[in-house]
């Protein structure tokens, strides 16, 4: 965990998630987790598509 609390930064960037899976995303609650899941699932789909 970095000494600087990352949550505010993530909020400002409107959930364009800089680091997938950081604690800051969990700490930001429903919207952040939903956005993170979307990014995660899209990345997974892309990966599957590219074989």
């Amino acid at each position: 965990m970095s000494d600087k609390n990352p949550s505010k930064k993530i909020l400002k960037e409107k959930f364009e998630l800089p680091v997938a899976g950081s604690l800051g995303i969990l700490a930001n609650g429903a919207k952040a987790v939903t956005a993170w899941r979307k990014v995660r699932d899209n990345a997974k789909k892309k990966e599957e598509k590219n074989g």
Partner: peptide, 13 residues
């Protein structure tokens, strides 16, 4: 320590 810091982050939200 991390448990407390995580709660501090949740508190911020």
């Amino acid at each position: 320590e991390s448990a407390y810091r995580f709660h501090d982050m949740m508190l911020e939200r």
